[in-house]
Amino acid sequence: MAPPSGVGKRVKGCQIYRPFVYGTTSRPFDDKKNPKPPGVPDDHTHSWKVFVKGVDDTDITYWLRRVQFKLHESIPNPVRMIDGEPGKPFVVEETGWGEFEITLKLYYISESGEKPQTLYHHLRLHPYGRNDEEREAMRETGQVPAWTYEEQLFNEPYEAFYEILTSGAIALPKGVAGSGATGSPAAGGASSSSAANAALAPIGKRSEGGVLARSAMVPLTSRQKSPFSRETEQLEIQKLKNAQNSVRGMTEKLLAELRVKEEQLAALRKEATEAMAGG
């Protein structure tokens, strides 16, 4: 397949990873914590959302352009195409009563020259976990998160895309979606639109190798909105090491017991041989 025009050649021997999170969060309807909105069918028991977003809510729209969510066929308009907005996740919110598999199709920016990628995720409505404590924690919070950490690999990206991925963040001007600021009043006291603000505001400058708002780096410590971090990674690694040590200890114990039994068996055989010879 011929490369897209204007993207240059592929950067040989280069691999770039960009982490992101996808999944679902559901909540049972409750008169106090999560009342059922008007118009929701009587048999719908939960509200839920499916999303794709950056780790620690960082912006990923500089490399991910669009996400297609394919829901269950019983849901009206089951195929939802969500375009990226800087600083916002790709998300679809719905209500329902049953669990099912959701198909997510990721479309990258045109400079990437990459084909769309398909992911699959199972919607969970009911508390789950490895033990009763994890399930009880979900019941207490009233939420059932089912999140997956993923790392997107771009192997030998085109030069134009390589520049976008590696040249650092672009600070968004005030008033642009995702900047966290609101538009300032225009002349005459009227509020200007975000589009007008974007047109009048100075163009953001790239940081010199910095990461800033467009960083896709995994945070060092865990936060409430982002359970994925280097800290949790190290905890999981330590759990694996502890499990390995436990298995190693059990193996050594079994080998020691086996050696004792082999020695006992050898002694019995010797006694039996001597008895037969004496007889």
Rank of each mutant, 00 (worst) to 15 (best):
K115P: 07
F100M: 03
G279C: 11
V21I: 13
E257K: 13
H44Y: 09
V144D: 00
N197S: 14
I16D: 01
S184A: 14
T148V: 10
K12W: 01
L123T: 02
V50W: 07
H122R: 15
A2L: 13
S112Y: 05
R18G: 05
L64C: 14
N131E: 03
R269Q: 12
E99L: 06
P76T: 00
T95I: 03
R65K: 15
L235W: 07
F161Q: 03
G129H: 00
S74D: 10
G188E: 02
V50K: 05
D42Y: 08
R10M: 08
F69E: 01
V11Q: 14
A256Y: 05
T251G: 05
A267G: 06
H44A: 02
E133A: 14
E136M: 11
P227A: 00
Y62D: 07
T118S: 11
I109K: 15
S222R: 04
E159T: 06
A201R: 12
G209M: 06
E231H: 08
E233Y: 12
S207A: 10
R65E: 15
P116Y: 01
R269K: 10
G279P: 04
V40T: 12
K9P: 08
F161A: 07
P86G: 02
Q224F: 13
P127T: 02
R124C: 03
E101G: 09
F90P: 05
I60V: 12
E257C: 00
V55L: 06
R124Q: 07
R248N: 12
R66L: 05
P3E: 05
F29T: 01
L104G: 01
Y108H: 09
M276T: 13
E150I: 14
R230G: 05
L220S: 14
H122E: 13
H121S: 02
T182W: 09
S246K: 13
A186L: 12
E257A: 11
L165I: 02
Q224N: 13
E274L: 15
E159N: 02
K36P: 08
E163W: 10
A190M: 13
G84P: 00
A177T: 15
I75N: 00
K49D: 03
P173C: 06
Q117T: 15
L104S: 03
Y120C: 11
V176W: 01
Y128F: 15
